[in-house]
Design a protein around this nucleic acid. Structure first.
Lengths: 190, 190
DNA sequence: ACAGACTCTGACCGATCGGTCAGCTAACTT
DNA sequence: AAGTTAGCTGACCGATCGGTCAGAGTCTGT
């Protein structure tokens, strides 16, 4: 992989792990085996590095939201969405964890504002007709919980990258999020 | 409230919101209307401020874990635990959110190590006999999701502090976490 | 009136932060 | 062989970081 992409990946890992404010360019440089000046040669600023790190994940979220469109109220629509959402989580777990848990404090960064807008879209996607406290909590727990559980470094089965475990995690996530967000009988007109 | 306690509360709010690394003593001082020197008069270091901020929450977690003891495998025991856990979350939501989401990166801070130990105890509490991937995910989503949803600043019903909404949130949380962690038929001997 | 404790402060410290800049080296072009 | 470019670097910048310290103001007990 190119140095450019290496830096992007290192930055994403560190931002998700130690926070944007808690990660220095010096540290990113050390992990990459470069000098801080080299990092700033590839990316014009720390903020540009953040944008490169989470931007692609935001594109995917936006694409999913656009594609699903209006099939939101029905249980069918929700289940179809959940499958795509789980795949997104598994592919972009660090980026999602980042803007879920640091989206509030980095509010004036353009790429984070974009992320926050998408979270709002995602929220209204699930809370159009039904707006009970319980449903709000369900959505928040599903979103924050999934982002959290996939970002925890653990010696557990999740750590391995073998495809069998991956399929197992995917199936379990779909099941759990379906229970939370699209129960067998959904009140479409709460 | 005393200046000492004010500083503790301000620090907790800022640590949970912007992260420990992302919060400066200068900022805490400004919010409190004091100088940075005054903050360091009340607390000998930034780390001491962190300990004062999350310590009481950790004491409560430990107390709950000690009290529940061995009634862990049964559905009854889990439900009793969940009620206490929800009350803890509602009372100490910022502190819980803090050490859930920053526990990994602040690993060498004593008070955070204590927090991480408690999370491990909590985890094994739910994963003694059953250790399937799905149950690990259920636990992580419940823990991380609840910590997340209660820490989000929102213009939603949660924001208000009126007792009626509080009871509504509590009931919904108990219901959702029970679904996640103690379904009607729990496999005690996975 | 004096002494001592409590609270608070500005000045200052070394270290680190994000970022700039001139210049080095190696590879490719003409 | 000369020129151009990409990749990288150390030296340096002002700002901010956590933390130290001597001292000022206030209040209480004697």
């Amino acid at each position: 992989m190119s140095t450019h992409d290496d830096l992007r990946d290192i930055a994403l890992t560190e931002f998700a792990y130690a926070g944007y404010a808690g990660t220095s360019l010096q540290r990113i440089a050390e992990i990459a085996g470069l000098s801080k000046s080299s990092v700033l040669y590839h990316y014009e600023s720390k903020e540009a590095l953040l944008e490169a790190a989470v931007g692609p994940a935001l594109d995917r979220v936006a694409a999913i939201l656009d594609a699903i469109g209006d099939a939101l109220g029905t249980t069918e629509g929700r289940r179809a969405f959940i499958e795509q959402f789980v795949d997104l989580l598994l592919e972009q777990r660090l980026a999602v964890h980042m803007f879920i848990n640091q989206g509030q404090s980095l509010e004036d960064v353009p790429v984070i504002d974009r992320a926050n807008d998408l979270v709002v879209r995602l929220s209204t996607f699930f809370a159009t007709s039904v707006s009970s406290v319980e449903d709000h909590l369900r959505f928040g727990i599903a979103l924050g919980g999934a982002a959290y559980v996939l970002s925890v470094k653990q010696d557990d089965p999740l750590a391995g990258e073998n495809p069998e475990t991956h399929a197992q995690v995917r199936a379990a996530l779909v099941k759990i999020l379906t229970e939370l967000l699209a129960p067998v009988s959904v009140n479409t007109q709460g």
